[in-house]
Computed example of a mutant assay.
Amino acid sequence: MNYHTRKWVKPEDLNPNQSLFGGRLLQWIDEEAALYAVIQLENKKIVTKFISEINFVSSAKQGDIIEIGIEVTRFGSTSVTLACQVRNKMTHQTIITVDRIVMVNLDEDGNPAPHGKTKVEFVKDRLKPKESDEDFH
């Protein structure tokens, strides 16, 4: 699992029990999944199709730093399926797990569209070296 984003739990993120509000955490997860899919599929037109069972394992409190981990579990022809784990940055205690988040690639008209991807790609591998960089190889 690769952890890409950290969040600091602030007073406005708390529920009446003074722990992290589940809805806020799900908002952060949905945003992180969308960003991950946009980068992987190289298309800004991505939507959340499905989120599987959400397992709240432990809570986070004000002042905790959490990190959101995302990994690809499957590429479909028009979608990418992700798994997510959120943990406490300092203790590595799991806060929440989500087995499946399905993100769908859309065309200009908002219809599901093939993306042509079959494996995880890293942005650095897609970038072409600048001419000045080639001098150092």
Score class of each variant (00 low, 15 high):
Leu26Cys: 11
Met1Thr: 03
Tyr36Cys: 13
Asp125Gly: 02
Ser77Leu: 06
Asp133Met: 10
Asn88Thr: 06
Ile95Tyr: 03
Gln85Arg: 13
Val98Asp: 08
Pro114Val: 04
Pro129Leu: 11
Gly116Trp: 07
Ser19Trp: 05
Leu14Met: 01
Arg24Asp: 13
Asn15Gln: 11
Asn105Arg: 01
Ser58Ala: 05
Val98His: 06
Lys117Leu: 03
Lys61Phe: 07
Thr5Arg: 07
Lys130Ile: 00
Asp64Lys: 01
Ile70Thr: 08
His92Trp: 10
Leu127Cys: 11
Val120Cys: 09
Thr94Asp: 14
Gly23Thr: 07
Glu121Lys: 04
Lys128Asp: 14
Thr81Met: 12
Ala83Pro: 01
Ile51Val: 05
Ala113Ser: 14
Lys117Phe: 07
Met1Gln: 05
Lys49Gln: 13
Asp109Cys: 00
Ala113Thr: 06
Gln27Ser: 15
Trp8Tyr: 12
Lys45Phe: 09
Ser19Thr: 15
Thr73Trp: 09
Val102Lys: 02
Glu134Tyr: 00
Asn55Val: 04
Val98Ser: 08
Leu82Gln: 08
Ile51Asn: 03
Val38Glu: 15
Leu82Thr: 02
Lys61Val: 00
Ser58Tyr: 03
Met1Gly: 08
Trp28Met: 07
Arg74Gln: 13
Lys49Asn: 12
Thr91Cys: 06
Val9Met: 04
Pro16Asn: 02
Asp135Met: 13
Ile101Phe: 02
Asp107Pro: 03
Ser59Asp: 10
Val38Trp: 11
Asn55Leu: 06
Ala83Phe: 12
Asn105Trp: 01
Leu35Gln: 13
Val102Asn: 02
Ile95Pro: 04
Lys130Asn: 12
Lys119Glu: 15
Val104Gly: 03
Leu106Arg: 01
Leu35Met: 14
Leu26Gly: 12
Thr81Gln: 15
Arg24Lys: 15
Glu31Trp: 10
His4Asp: 15
Asp13Tyr: 05
Tyr3Arg: 02
Val102Glu: 10
Phe21Asp: 08
Gly116Ile: 04
Leu35Tyr: 11
Pro112Cys: 02
Pro114Asp: 07
Val38Gly: 14
Gly69Arg: 09
Phe75Gln: 06
Tyr36Glu: 14
Asp133Phe: 09
His115Arg: 00
Val72Met: 13
Phe75Gly: 04
Ile39Asn: 15
Gly76Asn: 02
Ala33Trp: 05
Ser79Pro: 02
Ile65Ala: 08
Ile29Met: 15
Glu121Leu: 11
Arg74Ser: 09
Asn17Pro: 00
Glu71Thr: 03
Met1His: 06
Phe75Arg: 04
Lys130Ala: 13
Phe136Cys: 02
Leu14Arg: 01
Lys45Trp: 10
Lys124Ser: 15
Glu42Leu: 00
Asn15Asp: 15
Val86Gln: 04
Ile39Ser: 15
Lys124Gly: 07
Asp133Trp: 11
Met103Asn: 05
Asn111Met: 11
Gly69Asn: 10
Pro11Leu: 11
Arg24Leu: 12
Ile39Trp: 14
Lys61Arg: 05
Glu42Ser: 07
Thr78His: 02
Pro11Val: 08
Phe50Glu: 13
Ala60Phe: 00
Arg87Gly: 03
Val80Leu: 10
Phe21Glu: 09
Ile39Pro: 08
Arg24Ile: 14
Asn105Tyr: 04
Gln40Tyr: 03
Ala83Gly: 10
Gln93Val: 06
Ser79Lys: 00
Lys119Thr: 12
Asn43Arg: 09
Lys89Asp: 15
Ala60Lys: 01
Gln62Ala: 12
